[in-house]
Simulated scan of single mutants.
Amino acid sequence: MLSKTSPGFLQRFVAMVFLLLCFGSIFFIYYKPNLSSWLCPEVTWSFDHICSDTCLQIIQNENIMKIGVNNSCVVDYDLVKQKLINDVVEEHNRESQEHTLVLMWAWPFGKLVNVDSCKSLYGISGCVFTDDRRLYNEANAVIFHHRDIQGDLQNLAKMPRPPRQKWVWMNMESPDNSVKLSNWDLFNLTSSYRQDSDVWVPYGRIVDVSKEDVAFQIPTKSKLVCWIVSNWNPDFRRVKYYNEFSQHINIKAYGRHFSRYVNNKDYPKIISSCKFYLSFENSIHKDYITEKLFIPMMLGTIPVVLGPSRENYEKFIPSDSFIHVDDFKSPQELAEHLKALDQNQEMYEHYFSWRKDFVAQRTDFGREHACRICDHVTRDKGYRVFKNLDKWYWP
C-alpha cells in the first residue's frame, strides 16, 4: 500500500483531481451545450471516453497540447498539472513536517527504494524517496552515487542549493576503483563502507541469532580450497599471492579468468561445498571488507582473507571466524596450515564457534544507504560541510 506521503500517492492524488475536473466539465457541458467548444475537439460526447481517454492522457503525457485558437484545448493542462503537484507538495510540507523527502539523483545500482522497506527492514519511518528532479527545491537531501556523477561534477558545481538541503556523497568502491575528485567541496555528508563516514554502511555485518533461527550445521564439503574471480590483474597483490599459493595446495578456481563461469544458481552451492574460500580483495584499504568475506560466512565456509590488517577485520567479525594470510610467513606455510585443519575436524569446527550466537548478513546496497541517510538527515539538522573529500578518501 502506498504511503500518503509517497510520490506514488501524490501522482494518484493529482490523477483523482483531474478526473474530478473531467466530471465537472461533463456536468457543465450537459447543462451548457453552447459551450461545448471548451472541450478538446477529438473528445467524443461519450461519458466514458471523455474521462478514460483524454483526462488520463493529460495526466500521463507531459507534452500535452498547449492553448490553441480554434480546434485546440483552451486549458493549459501542463500548468494545471504542475500547480496541482506544487499544491500537494506544499500541503505535504505543511502538514507532515516530520517526513523527510530524499531525492535520488540516480538510483544507486539501479535499485528503487520502496518507502515501506525502510520501516520493515531497518525500523526507519518518515522517509519519502523520489527521482523526480523537479522536486529538487523541496528535497531535504539529495543522494549522489559517485559512479553516476563522476563525469558530471562541473555541472553540479554550478547548481544553486537550498540552504537547508544536504548533499550526500555515496560510494562503495575502493579508492583504487573510483575516479578521484580534486578540490570539490560540494557535499555536506558522506556515506560509504568507511566506518568514519557520516553514514556508515558496511558490505555486511555480524548480528545476533534470533530465536527463530535453526541451529547451524556445517554443510557437506567436497573441496578443500575454492576461489571465484573475474577481475584479474597481474599487479594485484591477490594475484601474486595466488600464483605462489597454488603451487602448494589444490585450489578449485572459477570465474571469467579461468573460463569457468559461475551463474547465480551455482554460486552458493560451490562456496558452501568448500572447506576454505579465498576472500581476497582486489585492493587494500582501511575498512574495505566486501561481500567476498560475508558470503562465505553466511554459507558455512571459512574465509581466508587478504585485505586490510587482522586488527581491521576484528573490528567487525570474531577473531576466530577467519584466517588471515598475514598470520603466516609465506603462502607455503598457510597451505600447510589448511592441510592440517583438513585432517583435524575438531580444529576445523572451532572456526564456526561464533555461529552459536551470531549470523552473517550481507548489505542490501542502495536501499540501506537511502534509508540510513534519510534517518541521519531527519535526526541531525545541524549545519555541515565536508571539506577535502579527496584527501580523506584518496590519501
Results as ranks from 00 to 15, higher is better:
Pro7Cys: 14
Leu10Val: 14
Val17Arg: 14
Leu21Met: 15
Phe23Cys: 13
Ser25His: 09
Ile26Asn: 09
Tyr31Glu: 11
Pro33Tyr: 08
Leu35Asp: 06
Leu35Arg: 08
Pro41Gly: 07
Thr54His: 15
Cys55Gln: 08
Gln57Ala: 06
Asn70Asp: 11
Asn70Trp: 07
Ser72Glu: 14
Cys73Lys: 05
Val74Met: 06
Val75Ala: 02
Asp78Lys: 15
Asp78Met: 09
Lys83Thr: 14
Val88His: 03
Arg94Ser: 13
Thr100Met: 00
Val102Cys: 12
Leu103Val: 12
Asp116Ala: 09
Lys119Cys: 06
Leu121Asn: 08
Tyr122Leu: 15
Cys127Asp: 01
Val128Gln: 12
Asp131Thr: 11
Arg134Val: 06
Leu135Ser: 03
Leu135Lys: 09
Tyr136Leu: 09
Asn140Lys: 12
Ile143Val: 07
Asp148Gly: 06
Arg161Thr: 14
Gln165Cys: 04
Met170Phe: 09
Pro175Ser: 10
Asn183Thr: 07
Leu189Thr: 05
Ser191Trp: 01
Pro202Ala: 08
Glu212Gln: 14
Lys223Gln: 14
Val225Pro: 09
Trp227Gly: 05
Asn233Gly: 05
Pro234Ile: 12
Tyr242Val: 03
Ser246Ile: 07
Ser246Glu: 11
Phe258Cys: 00
Arg260Phe: 01
Ile270Trp: 08
Glu281Gly: 02
Asp287Val: 09
Glu291Arg: 01
Leu293Phe: 10
Ile295Cys: 02
Pro296Tyr: 07
Pro303Ser: 10
Leu306Asp: 02
Gly307Pro: 00
Pro308Met: 04
Glu311Met: 06
Asn312His: 07
Pro318Ala: 13
Asp327Thr: 03
Leu334Gly: 01
Leu338Trp: 05
Asp342His: 11
Asn344Asp: 15
Asn344Trp: 01
Tyr351Gly: 11
Phe352Tyr: 11
Arg355Asp: 04
Lys356Thr: 06
His369Thr: 02
Arg372Cys: 00
Arg384Trp: 00
Lys391Glu: 15
Trp394Val: 08
